[in-house]
Amino acid sequence: MVDDALISGIEISYVYPDGTLGFDTLSVKIRRGERVALIGPNGCGKSTLMMVLAGLLKPKTGKVLIEGEEISKNIDTVRRRMGFVFQDPDIFLFNPSVEDELRYSLDQLDIDDDRASELLDQYSRIFELEKIMSKPPFRLSGGEKKRVELASVLIYSPEILFLDEPTANVDGKTRRKILEILNSYPGTLIFSTHELDVAEKIADRVLLMSVEKRIILDGGVDLLRERSLLEEVGVI
């Protein structure tokens, strides 16, 4: 069989500098176009695993491959193919205004002015940001921050999208908006959540992590119906 994996983590583990275990040794393969939900209780290593798979953190052991090549080798080109939306918008958003946030990626990609303002119009409309474009991000509400965060990543159309708890701490309206957008996202999607209905609506594959910081189950969305198991692991 030809390896059909887009991203694969082989025998990877991560330990934080202060000695805390991020996640224990595991192997995982993500195929092109898959929509993977990482579910598990708090502190089971979902975010850390995503950061390692995205090449943001170097695994302590093992290696991460993208299309068969070690991710760290081509990290600069890999970056522009990927988007990573952090759980905490306050560390993700650091530019002086919402408009600057959206432009931040476009500037790096040297997109010409006409095309850039076209994209700005389009994405500020999709994410309903028109009225807050000149505001500083730290002045916004939680839901607004989340929309800015998503917009500033999706604006450069990454083909692989990582999202860390995309619907945590947002109101119902923003939540519906986010689900709608993620449903129409065409690329490979990897996200963490502990809200089962979010996983059910968006994912086509579920990875269940336990407090022991390992992947204990890997399968289709029907996994989400195993109530007693999920309860035992601590997801619900």
């Binding site: 950061m51 943001l56 970056r79 952090f86 990626s105």
Partner: peptide, 22 residues
């Protein structure tokens, strides 16, 4: 110190996540 360092690390990682060129 340790919790501040973890904070700092995630801020740096978030910036790295938004880096699209060398």
């Amino acid at each position: 110190t340790i919790s501040m360092f973890r904070d700092l690390l995630s801020i740096l990682v978030a910036r790295e996540a938004r880096r699209l060129k060398k």
